[in-house]
């Protein structure tokens, strides 16, 4: 476990000093100003509008960061042969995958939570909203980003930089429409389409299951059942994806 922690720590420290991390702070400032401007000219409660816009933008930004950060980090280490140096010290290759995931998950999770807290504090200036549901939605966004990191870890090992980014984004986008794909397929008269839509539904991660943004700030709190479902789905999805990534990595020739 010490080795996992050390790899996670190295990953975290390197990413913390990355210029992209500071770019995110600039992003949140621009986001808050623009959402406030937009909310002020629309009808409804300004604070909830800002929360809606803000959480959506943070989710998009978080996903983008997760894909780019993960794939870039893994590929850079492979090309620069730092990976070799790390692997000559670890007793098993899965340690590297788990350590990398934890390091990236920690840095991106912290950045997203920080952005959400700034967003919440800013929204509070405009009026009252339910903090509990807002925080639940924020943590769910972190969980969603972690799933994306795990997907990116699979493609980072099997494809080139560009292809890995493209494939991860494709899965990310498709994962938001799996319910629609399933229901459209179910209405088809052609059995093959029904089967394909079902396969897609079960194969791809369902990001809507871990999306709690719709009621953020509007409702007092999500039910315990919903929270449990979100958590268990997100964690099991991450576990499965990390297992796949480790399995691939264990068998790969790192030339």
């Amino acid at each position: 476990m010490n080795q996992v922690i050390q790899i996670a720590r190295l990953t975290f420290s390197e990413a913390l000093r990355n210029k992209i991390a500071y770019g995110m702070l600039a992003f949140i400032v621009i986001l808050l100003l623009s959402s406030a401007a937009l909310a002020s000219v629309t009808m409804g409660r300004t604070e909830l509008m800002i929360i809606d816009l803000g959480l959506g933008a943070i989710s998009i930004m978080g996903n983008l960061m997760a894909v780019v950060f993960t794939i870039q980090t893994l590929q850079q280490e492979k090309e620069g042969r730092t990976l070799y140096v790390l692997l000559t010290r670890t007793s098993n290759r899965w340690i590297y995958i788990l350590g990398k995931f934890l390091g990236l998950a920690a840095i991106l999770g912290l950045q997203i939570l920080l952005m959400c807290l700034i967003l919440g504090s800013f929204s509070a200036l405009f009026g009252h909203f339910f903090w509990v549901s807002f925080l639940q939605a924020s943590f769910a966004t972190v969980l969603e980003v972690w799933v994306v990191i795990a997907i990116a870890m699979i493609f980072a090992q099997t494809s080139s930089l560009f292809l890995a980014i493209l494939l991860t984004f494709s899965i990310d986008i498709c994962g938001r429409f799996t319910n629609i794909i399933y229901h459209l397929g179910a209405q088809s008269d052609i059995p093959a389409i029904r089967i394909v839509s079902q396969v897609i539904y079960y194969l791809l991660p369902n990001f809507e299951t871990i999306n709690l943004r719709n009621g953020a700030g509007y409702i007092a709190t999500y039910t315990a059942h919903k929270i449990l479902l979100t958590l268990s789905y997100g964690i099991s999805e991450i576990g499965l994806l990390i297992l796949i990534a480790a399995w691939i990595f264990q068998r790969r020739n790192l030339s």
């Binding site: 010490n2 080795q3 050390q6 790899i7 720590r9 190295l10 420290s13 390197e14 913390l16 000093r17 990355n18 850079q76 280490e77 090309e79 620069g80 042969r81 730092t82 070799y84 140096v85 790390l86 000559t88 010290r89 670890t90 007793s91």
Partner: peptide, 28 residues
């Protein structure tokens, strides 16, 4: 851990200091 390896023209974590990087590798 029975051997030490130095690759040709290594890339190391650019944003870290040598001390931080070496501490991490040593602990590893």
């Amino acid at each position: 851990n029975r051997f030490g390896f130095m690759p040709e023209q290594p890339y190391f974590y650019h944003n870290l200091t040598p001390r931080a990087m070496l501490t991490g590798f040593g602990r590893l």
